[in-house]
Amino acid sequence: MKNELIIGDRFEGVLLETIKGKSSSRPRVRPLEYFDLEIRVEFPRHLREDNPLGTRFRSDVKVSQKTKNGEPWGSPYLVATDSSIIKLDYTPKKLIQAIKLNTASDRAYDYIEKEFKVEPKLIKFSEFRKKAYINSIESPKSKVTNASSIQRSDIIKTYALSRANGTCEACDNDAPFLKRNGQPYLEVHHIKELGKGGSDSPKNVAAICPNCHARVTHGQDANKFNNELRSKILTKEEELEK
Rank of each mutant, 00 (worst) to 15 (best):
L5W: 10
G8P: 01
E12I: 09
E17G: 07
T18F: 01
G21W: 02
R26I: 12
R26V: 09
V29K: 05
R30N: 07
D36S: 12
L37D: 14
E38G: 11
P44M: 09
N51W: 02
T55A: 05
R56C: 01
R58M: 10
R58I: 11
Q65D: 06
K66N: 13
G74R: 06
V79C: 09
V79P: 00
A80C: 06
T81M: 14
T81V: 14
T81I: 14
I86L: 12
L88M: 09
D89H: 08
Y90C: 04
T91E: 11
A104K: 15
S105Q: 04
A108M: 04
Y111S: 04
Y111P: 10
I112F: 12
I112T: 12
K114L: 05
F116L: 15
P120M: 01
K121E: 14
K124I: 06
E138G: 15
P140C: 03
N146M: 10
Q151T: 07
S153D: 05
I155K: 00
T158Q: 14
T158F: 05
N165E: 08
N165I: 05
N165R: 07
T167E: 10
E169R: 03
A170M: 10
D174R: 11
P176N: 05
K179W: 02
P184A: 03
P184N: 02
Y185R: 06
V188W: 04
I191T: 03
K192Q: 11
G195Q: 03
D200I: 01
S201A: 08
I208G: 06
P210R: 01
N211P: 10
N211D: 10
H213Y: 05
D221N: 12
L229K: 00
L234V: 11
E237T: 05
E241F: 09
E241C: 11
